[in-house]
Design a protein around this nucleic acid. Sequence first.
DNA 1: GCCGTTTTCGGCCCGACTGTTTTCAGTCG
Length: 603
Amino acid sequence: MQLLSGPMDNVDVARAFEELADLLEIDRANVFRVRAYRTAARTIESLGEPIAKVAARGVTALEELPGVGKDLAAKIVELLSTGNLELRRELAAKLPAGLVQMMRVAGVGPKRARLFYDELGLETLDALEAAAKSGELRTVRGIGEVLERHILEGCAAQHVRSTRLRISEADAHAAPLLAYLKESPAVALLDVAGSLRRRRETIGDLDILVGSDEPEAVADRFVRYPDVTKVLAHGTTRCTVVLRSGMQADLRVVPAESYGAALHYFTGSKAHNIAVRAMGVHRKLKINEYGVFRGTRRIGGRTEDEVFRAVGLPWIPPELREGRGEVEAARDGKLPRLLELIDVRGDLHVHTDASDGEATLREMVLAARARRYAYVAITDHTKALRVVQGLDGAGFRRQRSEIDALQRECPDITILQGAEVDILEDGRLDLDDESLGQLDVVVAAVHTKVNMPEARMTDRVLRALAHPRVQILAHPTGRLLGSREPYAIDMAKVIAAARDRGVLLEINAQPARLDLSDTLVHMARDAGVRLVIDTDAHRTSDLALMSYGVDQARRGWCSRADVANTLPLAEFRAILRGAPAVSHSSSAARSRSRAEHAHAGLP
DNA sequence: GCCGTTTTCGGCCCGACTGTTTTCAGTCG
């Protein structure tokens, strides 16, 4: 952690607490004290609003956060006001920062890092690597030839730090592995668990659960999977391997009567499991991956539902299991009824080869129709985006007549003409008002000059939202997972402006974007902002990405009512900002009505 | 360091695997 010039955000505060937890662990502090710092770090990182805002409401507001008490609330205030912590300075004075780096090496935890420092004086990762190479490490009690080799490999891996994969990539790796396991007659039950089942936007490793009476046979088949490059652990109920992609995969095998308990346990998250098990403790129950036990008697665990029921809860969808209040909401009967893919009736952000799409207007519309959508908005780029050959006013007028012709051919889906209008550097729109007025849907987005300071970027977007024709703000933070951080922008202000002006905020379903993030979705929903889920499709196959957007909306606690493109067309148009009181063109109205009946499965 | 449907003190989720030593500590999830 460094002293920061600007104010600390939630991630900065969470990282500071995590680092403190590492240092305390090396310092042999009480394990529960260490855990308290980690719990608070998770709470803050997944908070729906800036921690500074909570702090501004007073120290009591901080203490109301789960896992934050008097002491940690004071430390948050200290961090926000000074950028550092007295405790951290004290620990740093006696423990080199390199010890925290050493803990990142697989096989090195707090105990060994401390041992290497105390006995060999190792202070950095490089020193650890050198000691492993020279054989010096083996003079430490508990370190043999094998651990020395593992640590050496771990040091090398630090230099090519493996990153988390996008969820779509993890899906692509998981599917063939699951199919391979399913071929074995020993595999009775099979599910992916972990963060992939919770549908997190990025995935660190694959967790696979099998129900079987022949665990050894399943484990043996798993480690023989052709894509396995390394076996890290090979036990009877648990195996860990590294796949050719560099991704780690864990297998756990349990008997069928334990399957639900194991699925719950391995789905996580850790914070969620701790919350559920704590409820079990109150009821004098022991919950582990083998079942729910009262004393030695198993009282449940064949299904997940039995686990939840044992502690008096309804089943909680995996997407909500992040320890962000879902257990309390379930207890109070306040879980949202999450939307589903089948609820989506249209896609409102679709490109064609008129700008940077790969398919023609006709191909995209037919592909949308094949998904049984009631409506689709064609939203090509405007001309300021030079790299993609956007359209100007004349271009959109030409496209309108093409759309009208195609609409006559395809009465069972309503084709809306829209645009993804560039928000210029000063917040003006890249299309004249008259042309904007001709469009059915106006989607606005920032694409250029993405490195502006926060105040200017925020003003820029707020000015665009103030334009009466802007109806949807696309990929609001501009992030690209793994390659570009979100713009510096005050999303609390953007959300408030969207609410006040009736602008819809997009959940962009592209797996590299998933923008808004789950916590921002939650924050927007709480503020009463309506969302739309769009694929930003540039080819027909992209329309299938809608499921990733739905996953993200579910992680943000959205029900159908929170997402505008679950509405029938007439209702969707009615909530669009600046919508006319009565619908125009009678032929369009007729075709809309037919399309909606088709979607609802009516004659 | 947090927290309260038994508690303001005394708990805190729970187990598997590995490498090492020879009964277990450390790490990991």
